[in-house]
Amino acid sequence: MGRLRAKSDYEELRNARISENQARLASLGLQKTVSELRSLICSSPKSDKRKWNKVDYSSTPLRRSSRLTGKSTSSQGKLSHLEDSDCGEDGEERRLANGPLTRGKSGLRSRLISPEALARRCASKGRGSLYDPVYGICCHFCRQKKLCGEEDCKRCGEQDMDQPCIGKTDCSICHSSNGILCRACLKVRYGEEMEEVRSNKDWICPHCMEDKGINPYWICNSSLCLKKRKMVPTGIAIFRAREMGYKSVAHLLMDELQRSERRR
């Protein structure tokens, strides 16, 4: 009974306070103001939603990769018969991967490379020490687009666009980017010297050697090619190759592939 009585007293007190507050609001005229504001909000027209306009792209040509349109050369660079494919579909002359950049435009960017930068060009003869997006030719293995460190290279030293880079290799068969290697990668990964390659006009890159079966179990050990074969890239395997007495990483892989096939 005591709890019920206390509850009824609380409700009576609460109701009394509510009535008192309502009377106070009425005396101040606030209830009318609140009702007027609510009516204004409800009667105000809703703002129009932003309409989404579909853009019509049919009037403008879509950008398509030349690889999809079939205008580019294949990844293997089948340019051995240059007499039949000197010109592309658009009448533009095709360029070898390690060939002249353009013809008749020698020295267009020669003044954009500072003498201080050119002085550092021969600091590293292996891969070069100066990056250049125009004159630099990308190595297939290290993918460094640097000017070579060869002192006699007119392309990298004098920015002669009509000259090839003598610090990068050029396959006599494919003439593609797969056959371009810098001095360091050529020696470390494949055990060859740049001077021997330059003196041999019939030099064949690892890709073409593999395709023609010239050297059994010989493969290109760049990360790109190993991933295509679903093989794990070797990383800096030259130290393990030299400890085991191999000339290069390619010779190590060639022996490992041969032994793995014997176990089968």
Rank of each mutant, 00 (worst) to 15 (best):
K71C: 11
E261I: 04
S19N: 02
A97E: 03
S199P: 04
I18V: 09
V232W: 06
L28H: 03
L253D: 12
D56G: 01
R127S: 07
A6C: 06
E193R: 08
G213D: 06
I214C: 12
T234F: 08
P164F: 11
S124K: 10
L257V: 02
I214H: 05
S110M: 02
D132K: 09
S222T: 15
L118E: 11
R5F: 11
I204R: 14
S176L: 03
G128P: 00
S66M: 15
I41S: 07
D160A: 09
S124N: 15
V249I: 15
I238G: 02
S39A: 15
N178D: 07
P233Y: 09
P45K: 08
K154R: 10
E11H: 02
I173Y: 15
H251D: 11
P100A: 02
M254E: 15
R24W: 13
R111T: 04
P115V: 07
R240N: 10
Y10I: 10
M194E: 08
A16W: 03
Y57P: 07
C142K: 10
K228R: 15
R240L: 13
P115D: 07
T169R: 04
K187M: 01
H207E: 15
A184T: 12
S176T: 12
G99H: 02
A119W: 00
S172L: 01
Y190Q: 06
L112A: 07
I219N: 14
R143Q: 14
N215K: 14
C142F: 09
G2W: 01
V197E: 00
L118S: 02
G29S: 03
A123I: 05
K228P: 03
K154P: 00
S75A: 13
L96W: 03
A97P: 08
Q22K: 14
S80P: 00
S75D: 10
G213E: 08
M161N: 08
S72R: 14
H175L: 06
Q22D: 11
Q31S: 12
G149C: 08
S72N: 13
C153L: 02
V232S: 14
C205F: 00
D211A: 15
G213H: 07
C156N: 03
V249F: 05
Q144R: 15
G107F: 03
P164D: 03
S58F: 11
R95M: 11
D132Q: 11
